[in-house]
Computed example of a mutant assay.
Amino acid sequence: MFTGIIESIGTITNITKEQDNLHLTIKCSFTNELKVDQSVAHNGVCLTVVNINNNEYTVTAIKETLDKTNIGSLSVSSSVNLERGMKLGDRLDGHIVQGHVDQTAICTNIIKESGSTIFTFTYDATLRNITIEKGSITVNGVSLTVVNSKLNEFSVAIIPYTIENTTFKNITIGETVNLEFDVIGKYVSRLTSL
């Protein structure tokens, strides 16, 4: 489980393909605190640490993950939002995030306002995921509040601190991002469709 509060931005230093899998090696500020078999969210995707070497660690993304997320589009020197699993008993500063990406979306608009930046994302509504006004959404692992909810589109307002301390500073129009919809909303949506 995660909170959607990004701890660090990591840098991809190596990518190795093995059959349908990708092994990604990442350099980050907390590598020395990791251990093999630990979960770390990468742009919101929960991946298991399989190797640690000095200040870099390696995770493996399988075909299912590559098909449903933007992990396969990363390259050497790409930046990724990182968050370690939450500790039981810690404050939940974001919202409950599983690290299981539901689908991707495309950034369709970026508007800089006085004190914030509005990002708009469009996604495939046929997958039956929903957002609600003032509800929670995770974009590339970042816990955010929806400010404008439509059938296949939503917007979020990002404060300068979040822009500077996540990969939101690199997002451009047309870029693909990972979405994890609110877990409670997913269960309610599923129950009402039965």
Rank of each mutant, 00 (worst) to 15 (best):
F154D: 09
C46I: 10
D67T: 05
M1Q: 10
E133V: 03
K87M: 12
G72T: 04
A157Y: 02
S39R: 07
N148D: 15
N148P: 00
I15R: 01
K35S: 14
S39H: 08
T131K: 09
S75V: 07
N178R: 11
V50P: 04
N14W: 01
T117F: 06
V80P: 02
D124N: 15
V40K: 12
E7M: 05
E175T: 12
D182F: 10
V142W: 03
L34W: 02
V36K: 13
A61F: 07
I159W: 04
S75T: 11
N21W: 06
T166S: 03
V76P: 07
L22S: 10
Q103K: 07
E33M: 11
T192E: 15
I26A: 05
Q98D: 03
K63Q: 14
R190N: 15
R128N: 14
C28K: 01
T3E: 08
K134E: 12
L34D: 05
V147K: 04
E83R: 03
T172S: 15
Y161M: 07
N21P: 08
F121A: 08
T166A: 08
E7P: 00
D124K: 02
A41Q: 02
G4H: 10
V156L: 06
F2R: 09
V80I: 09
I171A: 03
T176E: 13
G99C: 10
N55K: 13
I159L: 10
L88K: 05
M1P: 12
A105Y: 03
T48H: 07
M1S: 14
K35L: 08
T16R: 13
E164T: 11
S155D: 07
V177W: 02
